[in-house]
Write a protein that binds this DNA or RNA. Sequence first.
DNA 1: CGGCAGTCGCAAGTCCGCTGGCGTTAGGGT
DNA 2: ACCCTAACGCCAGCGGACTTGCGACTGCCG
Lengths: 191, 191
Amino acid sequence: MADQEPRSRPGGRSARVRRAVLEASAKTIRDHGFEAFAIKDVAAEAGVHETSIYRRWGTREALILDALLDDSAQNVPIPDTGSLRGDLTTLANGLADFLDTPHGRALSLALMTGTGRSVDGIRDYLGRRLSIAGEVVHRAVRRGEVSPTTDPIVVIEALIGPLHFRAFMFHQKPDEAFVDRLVDLIITGTR
Amino acid sequence: MADQEPRSRPGGRSARVRRAVLEASAKTIRDHGFEAFAIKDVAAEAGVHETSIYRRWGTREALILDALLDDSAQNVPIPDTGSLRGDLTTLANGLADFLDTPHGRALSLALMTGTGRSVDGIRDYLGRRLSIAGEVVHRAVRRGEVSPTTDPIVVIEALIGPLHFRAFMFHQKPDEAFVDRLVDLIITGTR
DNA sequence: CGGCAGTCGCAAGTCCGCTGGCGTTAGGGT
DNA sequence: ACCCTAACGCCAGCGGACTTGCGACTGCCG
């Protein structure tokens, strides 16, 4: 998510501006949260003029999304505890923790409210992450732990969908009891 | 969600203004969508001054939420097909359809992004709807269709969570195949 | 090493969400 | 029928997102 310039100047001023703005954005989100994210602050922090930001990203929303994706491109630790229950529980608790951070909330919210061209990038990004997470189901199938007809994507979505629902609709972190019951339901369901 | 004034003038000018604004809001959302929702348009449509809207509702977001809740307070048909599979499938497809409409999307989005005092109202509203939907699980327990230890809320959230996830993260309506697989997983999981 | 295109800085301006002050009106209680 | 006050109309203004036009700069390419 970092460095694909359209064509002409791969290492020039553009790239420097882009990095400065992206890092200033991430810093701003971390420090002042997500609602208070103002373009002028980011511009000042990055030592770049406001106009340049608008020309490159167009909207506030697009910048936030790009900054968040750029900032969390390379951290999807896939658990391998030896059992599907362990893997799913670890995955779920990790996600619950993530959604409880300002950064996590902001990212998911930006993904959900994203419109326009960014949607394609979103779909790709999420599709990849889901496939990667589906690996734990594939392993369980190989171990003979679950039925071979099990659809990994459905299992993963059945797990993380309700977690998002809780986190956003009720504005509260899903507790461990809920995670356990949910994992129970899913595990039983895959046999 | 319609008519409780704080105290003093239950049927007076206030009530008329409230109704006019709420209906103008609903109309605006239906006609011009949700992103283009501008207070000044609503004010003009309702024949009311902009300031009055801000004084009563405070923020654009609060008005949207109130208008949507007001507009969909009385339509939660709970299926009773005789089997848990039938009930859950009907429920899921109904929700998928709802989330595919501008109104449905807007409502869920408003619920998720809602902040401040409105959150309490949100929690109540959703809690009620979930309990009501949980009724289909209770019936299944009474029929001996599923284990008596089944938690209705978890089942309902396991169903509607992934549907929201698909609808918002991938910006696409969950197809029937997905619904069927999801219901399969949940039903198997409750035995 | 000089030209040319792509970006950036800068200034001015629009639009909309939102606020505050002040005078006016309409409804309910007596 | 009268008064009292909550709610409304109106105006003026602030801040931030977003736009546009223009001149200056930077770096790749011949």
